[in-house]
């Protein structure tokens, strides 16, 4: 090996050896870096999956509750109760005012004259 090459190797080795583990920052492998970001990503994914599951469940629930009707079917009668027939009350109504009826005979007597 020639002079410059030998000197070069020695100088490079000396410079490289001047860097040791003690000079480096604490090790942080990329798989362990950014735990917060990874946790957030996992949270977003979990929330997305949960949302999807909830939406699917809601759709299933709606489909199972919906009445099955086809165009040929007659709509079922309403189940709302009809108005009940009027029952006579045991106590007479006091508030009802008597109304004149055409069948009521007029009282006899001279008719008042106009003049």
């Amino acid at each position: 090996m020639t002079g410059p090459e030998q000197r070069l190797r020695e100088a490079l080795e000396a410079r490289a050896a001047s860097v040791t583990y003690g000079d480096l920052r604490p090790p942080l492998p990329p798989s362990a870096s950014g735990p917060l970001i990874r946790m957030l990503r996992r949270g977003v994914k979990a929330a997305g999956l949960l949302g999807l599951a909830a939406a699917l469940a809601a759709v299933m629930l709606m489909l199972s509750d919906a009445p099955e009707h086809s165009p040929a079917q007659v709509p079922a009668p309403s189940r709302t109760p009809a108005p009940a027939p009027h029952r006579p009350s045991a106590t007479p109504a006091t508030s009802a005012a008597p109304t004149p009826s055409p069948d009521v005979p007029r009282p006899e007597g001279p008719e008042p004259s106009a003049g």
Binding site: A16, A17, Y21, L24, P29, P30, S31
Partner: peptide, 24 residues
């Protein structure tokens, strides 16, 4: 895996980079 590689090769690669960019 990458963790093993990181722990085994980090210092050597830093030394290579130091020879190219000068500072640690």
């Amino acid at each position: 895996d990458i963790d093993t590689l990181y722990h085994h090769r980090r210092l050597e690669l830093v030394r290579l980079a130091v020879l190219l960019v000068d500072d640690v």
